[in-house]
Design a protein around this nucleic acid. Structure first.
Length: 646
RNA sequence: GCUGUUAUGGCUCAGUAGGUAGAGCACGUCCUUGGUAAGGACGAGGUCCCGGGUUCAAGUCCCGGUAACAGCUCCA
């Protein structure tokens, strides 16, 4: 048999040779690290035999697929251990995930982290026993009989869900048998090190109508050092958690008297928000946007026209009871309908388009109580929102302009590398969630795809993530917990212009239907600030630091001089604070460092006499003395260039 | 919303076995006038999240609520 390897080279093997033997034929070292293989494009176990001329790629822990098989096998070891310790436990599913693996169980009684050492110990002994892992292909009937025999009710449901004609395989190791597509390692002893990290609840099949099962998370590595490093990195990431340091740095707080998902911005946070808002609004104005300021609530009638009442009522804060014949109002969950009414105030000509309305818009969304998280998921937030009403021919150019603005803002914030792009489409199977106009969807999605491909954006497509009125380009970022959130979105709306009967008069005097693009530029200030806190661990770039310079007196002989210097800096527009307290300079510096103040100016008798300031940077420490003018120039240059260096 | 964990001075946390509470930091006063990440002394400060229950007695045990955290689900 001829086997073609990944590098193109060919080797000859005996018919029926197992892949592990082929690996050994290539090199002893490869056979040692081999985990699974890709045979003719399919992932298989190393025990699979070669029966025809084939292409073969041996996969190791360095390959994503190899790593997944390794961890998936570890999930089976976990399941075997749980079954040994809790024989009544029922198995659900147990896949590998990005950071490790999990397995879902239906347990007779709940377990806690205190039970973990026992389970880990049992896993150790399973690994030590080095059970060979065997794959067997069975008929549907055999699979059902076997799983029914074990009382594995969830596995039976999984078998039912398998499409007709699908190959059904069982994997066994010792006394443990699992319904599983594989592939797996050759034996349980191949697992070198693992750790169970968490126990939580999770719905069966991810559906909240179903029973809540017990999910045990874990991770596994080939080397202990790699695992320690990974666990340490997870710990370190948590130190950047905006929800922790955002409170410590007094950027925001919450209070149960106010309510869930309603953060209070403290002076530093409010300053940061103002800095970002001014930056965004100035840039938008430069790029041809007009600003509106519209009400935070409206009668339900408005949302009935827009379709939000039908598609989104549960997410709104409604005031007044329709059943009691009250006039019903609702806090606005979005800005669109308000700006559409402004557009409709007067007849629009094609000469008025594109019409770009922007608003720094406060919105209210009644998120479920378990969803709130720091500043990233809140019930009231402020979005840099805009709606561009344009002709169909202008959509492409406008879309590109929007993306250009967004990329500029990302660069200034220094977050461009943190962001990935998702093209969110509708799900034709869930028509009730969307405006039911398949042609509209297809046309708009095709247009959006063309634009994205033209720009050459690297994006992933996602079904069922669209807005109810059109497809979106979502800019996604992950937080320190590895959870992904939408930071910014651009949406092409083919539905609402019709609902609101928005028109423009074309060059021939005929009424036409415009297209609308919904977009944000910096996203919601809350969520973006959360992201910035985590990105910079609270040490914001100079241009957005709430306090840019702290002037501190060495002794009370220099208080006057310090005040003078601070006033001069403030006059230049540099955000400055003074520290005249009766404390040692080391103490004041320590406090300013912990506060992440970019620059500290220290003024003692020497400086006062020489007319200089002693400069310290939070990043590089003591920079020596210079004139105040020289310092000002340095700071201003850094601010104007949106430098991310300091 | 669901599962689990948690809730004690402004903050971070102790509190043993049910017997009305402690530390460090922060805060105030005083001493100290110090040169690039914590000088010293003294002092003030607590409805132990809220509401019920058990008990002679509840921060501690039980029930309900609220809020925070993690996961699930959701996120126009």
């Amino acid at each position: 048999m001829k086997v073609t390897l990944k590098d193109g080279s060919q080797i000859t093997v005996e018919k029926g040779a197992r892949i592990i033997d082929v690996a050994a034929q290539i090199s002893e070292g490869l056979a040692r690290v081999a985990l699974i293989a890709r045979l003719n494009g399919t992932l298989v176990d190393l025990t699979r035999e070669i029966t025809e001329d084939s292409t073969l790629e041996i996969l190791t822990f360095k390959d994503e697929e190899g790593r997944n098989a390794y961890r998936h096998t570890c999930a089976h070891v976990l399941a075997q251990a749980v079954k040994n310790l809790y024989p009544e436990a029922k198995l659900a599913i147990g896949p590998a995930i990005k950071t490790g693996f999990y397995y879902d169980f239906d347990l007779p009684s709940s377990i806690t982290m205190d039970d973990i050492p026992r389970i880990e110990k049992e896993m150790e002994s399973i690994i030590k026993a080095d059970f060979p892992i065997e794959r067997s292909v069975v008929t549907r009937k055999q699979a059902v009989t076997k799983m029914r025999g074990f009382g594995e009710i969830y596995k039976l449901q999984l078998i039912e869900d398998l499409p007709r004609g699908a190959e059904i395989t069982l994997y066994s190791q010792g006394n443990y048998v699992d319904l599983c597509a594989g592939p797996h390692l050759m034996s349980t002893g191949k697992i070198k090190c693992f750790k169970l990290t968490q126990i939580t609840g999770a719905y069966w099949k991810g559906n909240e109508q179903n029973k809540m099962l017990t999910r045990i998370y874990g991770t596994a590595f080939e080397k202990k050092s790699e695992m320690t490093e990974y666990l340490q990195a997870v710990e370190d990431a948590k130190k950047r958690d905006h929800n922790k340091i955002g409170r410590e740095l007094e950027i925001f707080m919450t209070d149960e008297l106010v309510g869930q998902g309603l953060p209070l911005f403290m002076p530093k946070g409010a300053k940061l928000l103002q800095i970002l808002q001014r930056f965004v609004e100035d840039e938008e104005e430069r790029r041809g946007y007009m600003f509106t300021k519209t009400p935070l609530m409206a009668k339900s009638d408005l949302y009935k026209v827009s379709g939000h009442w039908e598609h989104y009522k549960d997410g709104m804060f409604v005031l007044g009871d329709e059943a009691m014949d009250d006039e019903v109002y609702a806090l606005r969950p979005m800005t669109c309908p308000f700006q559409y009414l402004i557009y409709k105030n007067g007849i629009k000509s094609y000469r008025d388009l594109p019409c770009r309305y922007s608003e720094t818009s406060t919105l209210f969304r009644n998120e479920a109580s378990g969803e709130m998280h720091g500043l990233t998921r809140v019930r009231q937030f402020t979005l840099s929102d805009a709606h561009i009403v344009c002709t169909p021919e202008q959509v492409e150019d406008e879309f590109k302009r929007i993306l250009d603005l967004i990329l500029y803002i990302e660069d200034c914030l220094g977050i461009r590398n943190e962001i990935s792009y998702r093209f969110s489409k509708w799900d034709p199977k869930k028509k009730s969630k969307y405006i039911n106009n398949p042609k509209g969807w297809n046309d708009t999605q095709a247009l959006m795809k063309k634009i994205l491909d033209d720009i050459g954006l690297d994006y992933v497509e996602a079904d069922g993530e669209a807005a109810f009125y059109g497809p979106k380009l979502d800019l996604q970022a992950s937080n320190v917990w590895g959870k992904e959130d939408t930071i910014i979105t651009i949406q092409i709306d083919f539905g609402l212009a019709e609902r609101f009967d928005m028109t423009y008069i074309d060059e021939n005097g005929a009424k036409q239907r415009p297209m609308i693009i919904h977009r944000s530029s910096i996203g919601s200030y809350e969520r973006t600030i959360a992201m910035l806190i985590e990105k910079y661990a609270g040490a914001f770039p100079l241009w957005m630091s709430p306090t840019q310079v702290k002037v501190m007196a060495l002794t009370d002989r220099t208080t006057e001089k310090c005040t003078e210097v601070a006033d001069a800096l403030k006059k230049q527009g540099i955000r400055t604070e003074v520290d005249l307290r009766n404390e040692k300079i080391g103490f004041k510096i320590r406090e300013a460092q912990l506060d992440k103040v970019p620059y500290m100016l220290i003024i003692g008798d020497k400086e006062a006499e020489a007319g200089l300031v002693s400069v310290r940077s939070r990043k590089s420490g003591d920079l020596g003395t210079m004139t105040l003018d020289a310092f000002c120039e340095r700071v201003k240059k850094e601010i104007e260039s949106f430098s991310l260096e300091n």
